[in-house]
Computed example of a mutant assay.
Amino acid sequence: MTTYFITRHSGALQWAAQQGLSYDVHCEHLDDLEQFHAGDVVIGTLPINIVAALNQKNVRYIHLSLDLPPHLRGIELNAEQLRQCKATLEEFQVTRLPYLSV
């Protein structure tokens, strides 16, 4: 089992270090789902369709969740700003369902 932290943000890495978060591999981007295997753990802020694909492979997904106010969207946050935005780690399991037209 390998734990991956997927982020391109230095503030997230600093926040993780301050929280004592341990992981085996840091990647700035998730390029290839084939590198992940059942039992692996992925930490990050990924699109829901990618999370569903990871979960289908029996990979655990831990989301870096924030209460992000509109004025902070789209800017690079530092560790203190992440703390102020109540950064937390939450595990999600996503299941892709068949599309039913509405």
Rank of each mutant, 00 (worst) to 15 (best):
T3S: 09
L64N: 00
R96G: 11
N58C: 10
N78F: 10
L13I: 14
G44F: 01
L77N: 02
K86Q: 13
F92G: 05
Q18W: 02
H63Q: 07
A52V: 09
I62T: 08
F92M: 11
A17V: 07
V42K: 02
H29F: 15
A79R: 05
N55A: 07
I62Y: 03
A16K: 02
A79L: 10
R96E: 09
A17K: 11
E28T: 13
F36M: 02
L13N: 02
M1F: 05
T45E: 11
S22I: 11
L13V: 13
T88F: 04
L64E: 01
Q19D: 06
C27N: 09
I50V: 15
H26E: 12
D31H: 10
E90D: 12
G44Q: 01
L13W: 08
L46A: 05
P98V: 14
A53C: 04
I48Q: 10
M1D: 07
R96F: 05
E91K: 03
V42C: 04
T7I: 02
F92T: 09
F92K: 09
E34T: 09
F36I: 02
R96A: 15
R83A: 14
A87L: 05
I75H: 06
I75M: 11
G20Y: 06
N55R: 02
R8N: 15
W15G: 03
I48M: 12
Y99L: 14
V102M: 04
H71V: 14
N55F: 06
P70V: 13
A17F: 06
L100D: 07
G74F: 14
N49D: 15
P69V: 11
H9S: 13
F92N: 06
P70M: 14
D32K: 04
L72W: 15
Y99T: 12
A38K: 08
P70D: 15
P98N: 14
Q14H: 13
M1Q: 10
L82Y: 08
N55S: 07
D40T: 01
C85M: 12
L54V: 01
V25F: 03
L66E: 06
T88C: 12
G20V: 06
T3G: 05
L82E: 00
G44I: 04
Y99R: 10
R73M: 15
S101F: 12
P47R: 09
L46R: 00
Q14V: 11
L100I: 13
A87M: 05
K57G: 12
A12T: 14
M1P: 12
L77R: 02
T88G: 12
K57C: 12
I6C: 08
V51E: 02
A16E: 03
S22A: 15
N58K: 12
D31S: 13
Y4C: 06
L97M: 13
P98T: 15
L97W: 04
Q14D: 14
N58W: 07
L64D: 01
Y99E: 13
N78R: 05
F92S: 09
L21T: 10
H37T: 11
D40V: 00
L54F: 03
